[in-house]
Design a protein around this nucleic acid. Structure first.
Lengths: 302, 302
DNA sequence: ATAATCCATTAACATTATTCATGTGAAGAT
DNA sequence: ATCTTCACATGAATAATGTTAATGGATTAT
């Protein structure tokens, strides 16, 4: 009933002094405005202006409508300009899901230049998903998934962002620290520290221990990388982590990284996204940035 | 470009779950909504919903539009309900102009019950007018004029609200206090206190002194009634005021009211208004209230 | 499977909005 | 005074928008 055009006319007449001038401003004819306002006045049951000769004077109702116009129209105009930015992919929220605990550190390094280049794009990182990372992607809970497990499916797209080697992190003076590589048997008497995820999602089990039928002495789960490595340094156990992560921490803690198996465990991290989001500029930019920004230490493996 | 209907559709779809339900809610057909939204999406250059089978899921753009809808639509709805009240004369601002200094006290007695009956109508009182009270009325500076001088003219309407007698207020033990009435000559040696208005607007001059060619010893102007009467009580002069006003003060100050001339000076107060405002309920109500609320002391004169 | 529901689309039609051409009255200039 | 200009009103023609009705495709419920 009270439409945008009504408010626009009232505001324009106030600003430009006449219906005719307002019509020019709004790219409509004076006739159209006259008809429109006449109908509004009829619907309201009251005049908006008093016609005094050739000029218009606002009634109390008109004054009130003008105040509404001056309050509401800027909101709509602002919304429109924001929408334009969003459509051009310059503004939005990038919701990133993480299925790779240690990757958080790497992610921070990508996010920070991204935020600089895209000041109007917010980044949100989630770590828990009811139906797994891929489910979250398909269910539009997240827009981007950082995962070591690509799950090729129609509608999804996975871009490898970097390779790395999964290694065993042990204390500096640990008996295994000097070895050039380890066998599964070597872990039989070790306490293994991992993130709290099911063993079938842990590569050290799937690719190393299980094939040899070996079970470690104990298995403890720890949420955060920092604490986990503190524990390793103090001799409470050993952990399987990306080599680059181990090397980063080894400058601060007395740690050593040892290869798992003769050839090592090779891993890749992928960024999963929906194909339907292929036209979102900032999303593509993020993937681009991520690929060009592989971890410095990653190269040492190739 | 971004119209109310667009926001309404987005909000209704969010609230009722489907385009079809939203169409019912908005008293439009599903077809119309489908077309409307299609056009909006085309104009924006982006989808608002992702069509997933038979249900709609908001895109980021859509989420944003929904937030706008939830913010802007209530503003428009509120404005509409206020407008309805204004049109029914239940809400507004009554701007009262005063051309009768002592009437302020009387006005307060009318305004106070009025404000109680019309909680949504504000009252504003003005006392200065560039082109006089009638000019202010015609120029829409005020909506109601309290004046002793009706100025019948097309478009204006004057309602008498009460009669009163203009008397001379003197100190209790003043030589003139005992007289049953005064002649102009009696003022030749008095100091006359009046409000600061031109003598040709003062009845004591126009109707009493001037015809007799008498000029008082001195003429001082004072803004406020309270101070004026304090001065009279302390013997600094005499003042011409409505009888009811003098009587009201005489309970607190040692004052006496004496008739001017043998028949006294009869006065009337009018409420002036624009005929074009004849359909404003609260304005009529005010005039009605004013007429039924003449000052208690006024009756003594008739 | 079957039916029901929902969105998209099409086409004929109805309604509403806008334009175009013209009229009227007020203000200002000659 | 008369003329010109300006601004709003009006009515008919035209364009835009919404309705009705029918249909298809897809999904969900029974």
């Amino acid at each position: 009933m009270l439409e945008r055009i009504h408010l626009a006319v009232i505001q324009a007449v106030d600003q430009h002094g006449s219906l005719t001038a307002a019509a020019r401003r709004l790219h409509l004819t004076q006739s159209a405005l006259s008809h429109t306002i006449r109908k509004l006045e009829h619907n309201l049951g009251t005049a908006i202006w008093l016609r005094e000769g050739r000029s218009l004077r606002l009634t109390q109702t008109g004054e009130y409508l003008l105040s509404i116009a001056n309050r509401v129209l800027p909101q709509l105009e602002h919304a429109e300009s924001k929408l334009k930015q969003m459509v051009q992919g310059e503004r939005g929220t990038l919701r990133i899901g993480m299925e790779c605990h240690p990757c958080y550190q790497w992610l921070l390094k990508v996010v920070s230049p991204f935020l600089e280049h895209w000041p109007d794009v917010d980044v949100d990182v989630k770590q828990k998903f009811q139906f797994g990372g891929v489910g979250a992607l398909l269910g539009y809970e997240i827009d981007l998934l950082v995962t070591p497990d690509p799950f090729y499916k129609t509608g999804l797209r996975f871009d490898p962002v970097f390779d790395y080697e999964q290694v065993l992190v042990v204390p500096d003076h640990h008996p295994l620290a000097a070895r050039s590589y380890l066998n599964a048997e070597d872990l039989r008497n070790q306490v293994l520290l991992t993130y709290p995820v099911p063993p079938d999602r842990l590569d050290i089990y799937m690719q190393f221990l299980n094939p040899a039928g070996v079970v470690p002495k104990r298995h403890k789960t720890i949420e955060t990388t920092d604490i986990m490595l503190q524990m390793v340094a103090s001799g409470r156990g050993v952990a399987a982590l990306p080599r680059w992560l181990a090397e980063e921490y080894s400058t601060r803690l007395p740690l050593k990284a040892v290869r798992l198996g003769r050839k090592g465990i090779a891993k890749q991290i992928y960024l999963g996204s929906r194909e339907s989001d292929g036209d979102i500029e900032y999303l593509n930019a993020f993937i681009q940035l991520a690929r060009s920004h592989e971890h410095p230490a990653a190269g040492t493996h190739r």
